[in-house]
Nucleic acid binder design. Structure first.
Lengths: 244, 244
DNA sequence: CGCGTGCTTGAACATTATCAAACAGTGTGG
DNA sequence: CCACACTGTTTGATAATGTTCAAGCACGCG
C-alpha cells in the first residue's frame, strides 16, 4: 500500500496543476509517460468565458474534461431554486466522469477557463488499454470521495464560523498567506450551505478578530493560520470538554 | 458509454447484495466470473456484534471489507464530540478502500454483521491482475461519490422535514412499503445533520399527516410514497414559485 | 415489578435566514 | 473627467428554524 499517494501529495499535485497523472510507481515509468502522452493525444484544448455553462444537469455525458486554467463550479438545484455548489474545480481536476450516462450536476465556469476535453469513448478506451490509468483514476476518485465526506461533516455539524474557517484553509495553497478567491460570495454561500449575508458577516468577524485581512472582497490574507485552524474545529470549547 | 451501469441498476444490485461485481459486458463473461471466484478465494468471512468498532479513524488500513449481512455506520468526529454519520453500509457495500493508508472514518456495526474480509495486498494484487475488476471498482466509487454529492445537497439546502423524507425514501427498498430501520434515532440524526429530538418531532409530524405509520420506533410504513417524494423536494412551494 | 435505555414531547433559547437598506467598485455615456 | 447606473458586498432589524434542556413515556429485561 505504500505505493498509493497520500492525501497530502495528491492535493499538492492538484493545486500545482501537474500534467502527468500520478501513477503507481509499481509499473515501469516508461508506460506511465506513454499514458500521459496518449491522454494528450486524444484531448483537445477548449476555452470558455466566465459564467458559461459547460455541462447541464441531465445532459448526456459526451466528454470528460480536465481543468488547465481557471475555476469552475459543480452545482445542483432543488425544484424551488435552492442551489448547492457541490464542488469547485481547479487546475488539475477532472470532471464529466461518471458511472451514469447523464450529468449529475451542472458545470459552470467561475472565471475564464481552459480545459482539455476528451471524448468519452476515447477516454474509456484508454482506461481499457492501460490498467495503470484505471488504477490512477480509481485513486483520484477515492480522493474525491474523501473530500466530499469531509464536507459532509462540515455541512452536517459545523457552525457558520467553523465552515468559513475550514473553507479558507482548504482554499489557501499551503505556505502562501494571500489568497485570491475566484468565486463570489454567492458561490461560497452555496458551497457552505449558508446565505451570502452570513458569509459576509462572519468574514468581517474574522477580520475584526485579526485572523484574516480583506484587501479587496476576494483577496484574503490569512494573518493567523493557526487561529483559523483552531476556530475551524472549535478547539476552545473542545479543550473545556476534555478537561473533565 | 451504454456499457456503464445506470444508477438505478447499481442501487438495486447493492440492495439485493449481489455476490458478483457488475463488470462491463465488454469483457468476456468467463473472465468476470473468474474475478468473482478469485475475490471469494482471497476473502475470509468474519462476524461482529452490534456496536463493535471494526475500524478506528486514523488506523492503518489493513483490510478491505464487503458487507454480507447487517448494517454498519461510517462516522467522523469533531474534537468536541460532535458526530457525523458519513454513510450507512448495507449488504453489497465495500469499505476500507482508500487512496490513503489511514482510515478516514471509524466503522461500527449498527447490527450484528457478517463481512468478507480481504487483506489489502491481496486486494491490490487482484486489481493489478484484473483490469476489469479495477474498472468495476472505479464505477463503484463513481456511484458512491454521486451518493455523497446528493447528500451534500441534502445537508446544505434541505429543511429538517425534507431531509427526513429523503432519508426514508432512500432507505426504503423500492416496491415494499414497510421499512425496518436497523439504526437508532441518534444515528439517523447524525446522518441527517439534525438532533434526535428534531428527527423524532418530524417523524411524528409525518405520522400525523398520514404519510407514514410508525408500527414500532424502527418499523416504518410508507403510506404515501408520492407525498413523501413531494415533501422531500418541497414541491408545493416550488409550484408556487414557478407560477410567475 | 422496577430499572434502564431510547424515544417523544414541551418550553425557552440560539443561530442563521430573510428582508431591507446602505455602500463600494466598475464600467458607461455625457 | 465626472455623474450615473449596475452589480456585488456589507450591515442592520426582525423572524424562522432547529437546538438545548428538562421532563415524561414506552418498551424490554433482569
Amino acid at each position: 500500500m505504500t505505493a498509493l499517494a497520500t492525501r497530502q501529495i495528491s492535493t499538492a499535485a492538484r493545486i500545482q496543476g501537474t500534467q502527468l497523472p500520478r501513477l503507481r510507481p509499481v509499473t515501469p515509468t516508461a508506460s506511465t509517460t506513454s499514458v500521459a502522452a496518449e491522454l494528450e493525444q486524444i484531448g483537445s484544448t477548449v476555452r470558455y468565458h466566465r459564467d458559461k455553462t459547460i455541462v447541464e444537469e441531465g445532459d448526456r455525458l459526451i466528454h470528460v474534461f480536465k481543468v488547465t486554467e481557471g475555476a469552475l463550479r459543480a452545482i445542483r438545484l432543488l425544484p424551488d431554486g435552492r442551489r448547492c455548489v457541490t464542488r469547485f474545480l481547479l487546475p488539475g481536476d477532472f470532471f464529466g466522469f461518471s458511472d451514469d450516462t447523464e450529468a449529475p450536476h451542472t458545470i459552470e465556469a467561475v472565471s475564464d477557463v481552459t480545459l482539455v476535453r476528451y471524448t468519452r469513448p476515447a477516454f474509456e478506451a484508454l482506461l481499457e488499454r492501460h490498467p495503470q490509468a484505471c488504477r490512477h483514476f480509481l485513486n483520484l476518485m477515492c480522493h474525491e470521495l474523501s473530500a466530499a465526506q469531509e464536507r459532509l461533516l462540515l455541512l452536517g455539524r459545523k457552525s457558520a464560523l467553523e465552515r468559513l474557517s475550514s473553507f479558507l484553509l482548504t482554499m489557501a495553497p499551503k505556505g502562501s498567506a494571500a489568497l485570491m478567491l475566484p468565486m463570489n460570495r454567492s458561490d461560497v454561500a452555496d458551497y457552505l450551505g449558508l446565505t451570502v449575508e452570513t458569509v459576509s458577516r462572519f468574514l468581517t468577524q474574522l477580520r475584526n478578530r485579526r485572523v484574516i485581512d480583506l484587501r479587496t472582497a476576494n483577496e484574503i490574507v490569512l494573518c493567523d493560520r493557526e487561529a483559523l485552524r483552531s476556530i475551524s474545529e472549535n478547539e476552545i470549547a473542545a479543550s473545556h470538554a476534555t478537561r473533565h
